[in-house]
Design a binder for these strands. Sequence first.
DNA 1: GCTCCTCGAGTTCT
DNA 2: CTCGAGGAGC
Length: 700
Amino acid sequence: MSVPDRIAELRRRIADADRAYYLLDAPTVPDAEYDRWMRELQGLEAAHPALVTPESPTQRVSGRPSAAFAEVRHALPMLSLQNAFTEAEVADFVRRIVEATGEARPAFSVEPKIDGLAVSLRYEDGLLVQGATRGDGARGEDVTANLRTLRSIPLALRMPAGEPPPAVLEVRGEVFMPKAAFERFNAEVIAAGGKPLANPRNGAAGSLRQLDPGITAKRPLAFFAYGIGEVRGFALPATHSALLRALGALGLPLSPEIDVAQGLDGVLAYHGRIAALRDVLPYDIDGVVYKLDRLDLQEKLGFVARAPRWAIAHKFPAQEELTILEGIDVQVGRTGAITPVARLRPVRVGGVTVTNATLHNADQIARLDVRIGDTVVVRRAGDVIPEVARIVPERRPSGPDGQPLQPPFVLPSACPECGSAIERPEGEAVARCSGGLVCPAQRKQALLHFASRRAMDIEGLGERLIEDLVDFGPVRSVADLYTLTLDDLLAMKRRAEARDGVTPETVKQGKIATRWAENLLGGIDQSRNTTLERLLFALGIRDVGEATAKQLARWFGSLDALMAADVEALLAVPDVGPVVSARIAGFFAQPHHRALVERLRSHGVHWPEGPPQRTAEGPLAGRTVVLTGGLSAMGRDEAGAHLEALGAKVAGSVSKKTSLVVAGEAAGSKLAKARELGIEVWEEATLLDFLRRHGRLAGP
DNA sequence: GCTCCTCGAGTTCT
DNA sequence: CTCGAGGAGC
């Protein structure tokens, strides 16, 4: 056998073995044999460098660490999917498809929704030339070198003999870390004294973003294909399921659970079947995906705001786990609100480790009847925030008499931070510390709020620094921030470090260590230049949030006009009723609040003032707009500011009164609601076009 | 007085 | 995101 033939044979055997091992999970050759082939191939290639090709299995690790990842523009955007959490939502989805297509019982290509990260593989003339992350859907990162190290990703498409490869074939799919491989990998890392990966999903994402492909190569990653992007010179079959089979024939790995289901009952049965398999599947999933099978019908249905109308992700209900409630702490908020927080024995729920969960208030504790030591069900609801769903009464620790060891939990009657009485007004759910700004916790929260991005936006002033400023520095009220000197800050730092028993870095390192203090002073200085609405919000008047502050600023135009307004004048402001109006008037009636405002002014805090603006003007006057999802060209705030400048009222939630919804990337429940109510929806491009036409944006 | 809309406030983890 | 409660309209 000639050397080129032998090389070709070895490459084919290795590729087949890779496929069997990673895709079919059924090794066909012993590891030793595989290693022998690989070594032989490496030897032959070393002796005949001219025969080395990029798609040879020896070339998976290119070895050259890239400095950073280049940006890749996807030829066709990588789409997001609508989500459904209930059978009713799926029924709606199927009904819409039935109505739009006239098919009584449409066929769906169905697959598990793998919890990994989406990538796009670009094959040109049959060879893998580029691999990219999803990014924002339009642009991702070039991670070709890293993806090449995945043994389940073919470097070259396996074409049937005599058939030419497609000129371009972009394959979309999911990179993930199989559960068993994740456990094995972490066990090894821990044994070696390293830091384990948090969960398979993050492990996969982190591995792909390694600058050194050599590291990625050591991570047990796998890939499943689920769709395509740009295609040239490749005859598309009639259905999505046939397309997937075709990808499989080209050597691309597919989830073995892929199937075809007919109609609503079919997809729901599939959902049930996969949910039952969830724990035994070798990879993490968070739901299943239904795609209308016929490609011609897919095209007919089209897209809404970057999500196809012909596909939906049917998510599994929030995951629940059992753990032990080790204690209940109480936190004091900016308004004095007392919030009980459950301290939990750390538990992994839906991919993240949960140690805290809010218990909201005393009513919630009573409703749940949680006691320290109880076994509780922790759930990650609404995708993110963990909550204690219920307790497991059978597991409550009890004494020999059968009585619970722990009494029911009662909120303390004195504030843990300042000792002031905790009061709960009749009929209200929240209890509050009565200490006001005497309470250090409230003072710190007030400062944090004042400095926050949406208020005065003081860069460099975070939670940690505020702790020290209040405990060891001269800061008692927000106005004190504007008289701070470098010496104050360094003295404060020394005291804080002395308490912590740290060698004073300020002394040790001299000038370098003053950098943070200079940055903070710079941040404070910049915040002097602000707007009336930011200042009003920053003052932290109860029930005056961003929206109300904006209304007040517009209505009165100047701070003096607002401060001079009585309860009656305030009632005339939109969205201000008796409660809020009394709070505002009450706030400014207090001499120390008036003095605070004067101090801020005299220390250079300033903002533009103007005449009252009590009516909206512009092309969007009278329209209420809601922004949802992520925009790529600008932030949501920025878009909102543009819309307001054109006369729109920008609201936070969708209702009958909403006249327009702008849906960006990964828009969720608000978009769904807008559709349900039949409200006009714009995608980002429409918005940008509109802004351009009204002179809010330059260029095309 | 009832009901629907909004807004405010608080929260978790990476 | 969710809950509670204020505002506004009927």
